[in-house]
Design a protein around this nucleic acid. Structure first.
Lengths: 199, 199
DNA sequence: GAAGTTGTCAAACAATTAGATGAGAGCATG
DNA sequence: CATGCTCTCATCTAATTGTTTGACAACTTC
């Protein structure tokens, strides 16, 4: 039926052809991370994901069973990744700064999490550990009148703020949320704020 | 073509019929607020908005020029509403608490704002006013080592946290983000945290 | 009360979009 | 080289969804 007799498709380059399955899978996951973190689940388009990856959109069904499967896989991946730097050994302030750096280096994870929260998807993350904060409080590193839970939630909020409200950053600071200038300023201020919570 | 010869449509009740235009407009706006704040722009369905309002979905085009027009109108309405309680006369701590209460009483506005922030829509809000915070800092109500801009952004983040990360609230506090218990606890802690920023 | 305007609805329409189908290329194994 | 398996693609299909159309009732104005 079609006039063009089937374009012979560019040679996929032998060496890149070799590890294609894993490579395609990775390309799709990366592209999906971009697309979903940018537009959310409902706003994302499988076609756009495929385009970003430079692959055919049918591969999304092939590898992940469809748009939703891909989305879920992304969520699982992020949980795995988050687990890697949730080290209870390092001090609280450092941990927060570590999260903050992560959030700056690649805000996609945070954005994805916020999107999930807004749409009411419950990633069954492990219950949060407050023991470290309690220990610090007992040791006098955190004011007695503060609730460790509240402090932790505040830290979460502050860490994700630049990702969730970039417009507010522009309005209040007058600089770009992803500029090095803001990054340093915000990190420093976060440190100071935390220090102020300690008597 | 259709078998049913046009159902005679239930009588719209004389007195409710009277002020229909304004009433329908309001019903649609309310329904839209529910729908958009719950699912975001891309996830919202005009049909669902119409259903919530108990009206025909065509009226959305009639009154607002379509889905997007309705969405924009909602944004404008919220800006107007926000302006009403942004009183520079009251002390900073009270202002924040006021925002917090508003966020608890009706989280739809905050949620809508977060959706907008995530999708990169820039509601051209007026540039944020830091003069009050600066004055307080000069008067010794805010520690000198803190940047007023950072403090303000932190407050924004903290106020919207229960809306943006309800899952975190459940994980950390072990209670529902919209329970009275959490509400009081969070408000009190927010007050204390702010007070700790003052030397 | 006739004519025109406004508010409302149901049904048709057009665009978008996720997923299904079927075919073909590369590669291994006999 | 034949066979089968894996990976990839272009095209088709079916469903969803926002908007348009056309009709009609209520109300207003003359």
């Amino acid at each position: 039926m079609q006039g063009t007799p089937k374009r012979p498709r560019r040679a996929p380059t032998p060496e890149e052809r070799k590890q294609c399955p894993a490579r395609s899978r990775r390309l799709l996951l990366e592209a999906a991370m971009d697309e979903f973190s940018e537009k959310g689940y409902a706003g994302a388009r499988v076609q756009d994901i495929a385009d970003r990856a430079g692959l055919n959109k049918q591969l999304i069904t092939y590898y992940f069973g469809g748009k939703e499967g891909l989305y879920r896989e992304l969520g699982r991946e992020w949980l795995r990744h988050e687990a890697t730097f949730n080290d209870p050994a390092i001090p609280f302030e450092e941990l927060i700064v570590r999260y903050l750096r992560e959030a700056f280096d690649d805000p996609r994870g945070i954005r994805l999490a916020i999107w999930q929260a807004l749409t009411g998807e419950v990633a069954d993350e492990p219950r949060e550990d407050l023991s470290d904060l309690r220990r610090r409080q007992a040791a006098g590193e955190l004011a007695d009148d503060l609730d460790p839970a509240a402090v932790l939630l505040m830290c979460y909020a502050v860490v994700s703020a630049p990702a969730t409200m970039p417009h507010a950053v522009r309005q209040i600071f007058g600089i770009e949320p992803d500029s090095a200038e803001f990054r340093e300023r915000w990190e420093e201020q976060l440190r100071r704020i935390i220090r102020h919570l300690d008597p």
